[in-house]
């Protein structure tokens, strides 16, 4: 599959169908990948596909001025469709190389499982439903469910629905049990009393540095000027106090409602490990429950908050 990706990418560049390919190459740290953006046909040999390619590459697409090919997993392809819906990128400018995904491995979970730092782990390989972790020559096998990211466990669309080239066979969506595991953190939060929940979020946001990594990595956050940078009026004070941090994040989630595809990039990007996906996914579920709307599944549909139905929910209005 990796070989086919390289050949396809090379052919696209050689035929002049695209001027640039966006994919993954091996990262500088072990068990990581890093985005590869290249117009050089020889560099396509560096493209890889592996269970560590966590990034959502659609974040590079808004504002592109040439034709590009982009590697997309299920969630990424939905982010791309969402950008098409918002007129941020034109479908005809893209060659989407779809990759059916069976989940991305969360290194933090692996570290917790074997109680070793990632540098002390010799190898991590995946075989179907099992993952083989080698530490000091000692091979241990675990169910893959224990090492995948939460959003992968709860994934509804592992196979891209919008693509030009599909590499490999479609993969099945997660089963109920896996989905439940992916939603466990959120279920725990919902079981709390409102005061407890507020106290929880408050303590989480006391850590926030307001580096805006979550916003910058989010493909749905494409505003050219964000409200947090407005100075007249200053909606959010730039000092990272928990009150403003929380206000920023809640508003951000409300602004990307109906665009978020639960790709989990915000939580991965967070340097202080705030469980941001527990916010994003809840918004995703609210939107799907109230409006039966799933972001990035229909490129012809108008974005959620730019349209309405006469029969929309109204029971909360007085």
């Amino acid at each position: 599959m990796e070989q086919r990706l390289r050949l396809e990418a090379k052919a696209l560049l050689e035929q002049g169908k695209v001027s640039c390919v966006i994919g993954f190459e091996v990262g500088s740290l072990r068990f990581t990948t890093t985005p590869l953006i290249t117009g050089d046909r020889d560099a396509t040999g560096r493209l890889v596909l592996n269970p560590f390619m966590a990034n959502n590459l659609s974040v590079y697409l808004p504002g592109i001025k040439e034709k590009v090919a982009v590697v997309a997993k299920g969630c990424d392809s939905r982010s791309i469709v969402s950008l098409i819906q918002d007129n941020k990128v034109a479908r005809e400018d893209l060659v989407i190389i779809g990759v059916p995904c069976s989940g991305i491995i969360d290194l933090a979970k692996v570290e917790g499982l074997v109680d070793k730092d990632r540098d002390e782990i010799d190898d991590i390989t995946r075989h179907g439903d099992k993952v083989l972790i080698t530490v000091n020559g000692d091979k241990r096998e675990y169910p893959v469910r224990e090492v995948l990211f939460d959003n992968c466990l709860a994934c509804e669309t592992p196979t891209p629905q919008e693509y030009d080239i599909l590499l490999g066979e479609p993969t099945a969506a997660a089963g109920d049990e896996s989905r439940k595991a992916g939603q466990e953190k959120i279920a725990r939060l919902k079981a709390m009393a409102p005061d407890e929940r507020w106290a929880f979020w408050r303590s989480e946001f006391e850590r926030c540095l307001r580096c805006y990594a979550c916003r910058n990595i989010c493909p749905a956050c494409f505003c050219e000027r964000c409200f947090v940078e407005e100075t007249e009026p200053t909606w959010v004070m730039p000092i990272p106090r928990w009150q403003d941090n929380l206000l920023f994040q809640v508003t951000r989630n409300l602004h990307v409602a109906g665009r978020c595809t639960d790709c989990g990039e915000c939580e991965r990007a967070c340097p202080v490990a705030i469980p941001l996906r527990s916010l994003a996914r809840e918004m995703y579920d609210i939107v799907s429950e109230l409006f039966n709307y799933r972001a990035g599944t229909d490129k012809e549909a108008p974005p959620l908050l730019t349209c309405y139905e006469p029969t929309d929910v109204e029971d909360f209005i007085r």
Binding site: R197, W201, V250, I286
Partner: peptide, 8 residues
């Protein structure tokens, strides 16, 4: 709905 989820 989202404010409720936050604990407001």
């Amino acid at each position: 709905r989202f404010l409720e989820y936050m604990g407001i």
